[in-house]
Amino acid sequence: MAEPAVAPVPAAIATRGLNLWYGDFQALFDVNLDVRQGIITSLIGPSGCGKSTLLRSCNRINERLGYVRTTGSIEILGQDIYAPEVELVQVRKQVGMVFQRPNPLPLSIRDNVSFGHRLHARGHRVSRSRKEELVEDALRKVLLWDSVKDRLDTLATELSLEEQQKLCIARLLPVKPAVLLMDEPCSALDPKGTAAVEELIWELRGEFTILIVTHNMAQARRASEETVFMLIGKVIEHGLTEDVFLNPQHRQTADYIEGRYG
């Protein structure tokens, strides 16, 4: 596995010898991956190669399925998230996730954005104006404020898919996560929506560490700084996006990029 040439900042996500089984089926094999802080890393590979599994391990959402078994470790910001003293809720606060299909809660736009904050601000008095501010900040950051500011109380499920997906990103922000995991965030959107959400993701670069699973080569190429290529549960190649696309070190990577796998 080719390490990126320079790593000036410590890894936001570091996996060591990560193996994962769904029952008897092994989905990840000895994954050692360092995702650099503050950049966008895209995770590419054919269907079923373990991209989503890896992503979903990073905030332990996988373990809701009772038959998942993992060995090895995942460190987020230097802390092993599988360590016994780790509080799952705190992990989830730090590691937000955006899903393939936008999944706004069946609440108003406003309540969707403040949902996470309300959960974690229990016991503190938060003034009304502060709450309004939080909602506005989050919606501005995802470039949604101008189109929804006059209808904050309408149901979020009535927004267009593109707006819903932006909202799903917005509602993570008041909780102040360090890492955003995105599982094919544009695959349910039309080309215009895709472009808009990509632009947004690009805007968020720097402030968050973003790990994004995508099937879309062009998207990985134009919207990420580093690229990880996976095949059958293993990380094959990891490097600067340019290098991976223009000068892949492995035959399998080249084959995939040229469209020779599913």
């Binding site: 959402i61 809701r64 809720v89 989830r92 937000g96 706004p104 809660l105 974690h120 799903c168």
Partner: peptide, 9 residues
């Protein structure tokens, strides 16, 4: 999943 991912119990 949306709730869990925002850290809801």
């Amino acid at each position: 999943e949306a709730c869990w991912n925002m850290g809801a119990t």
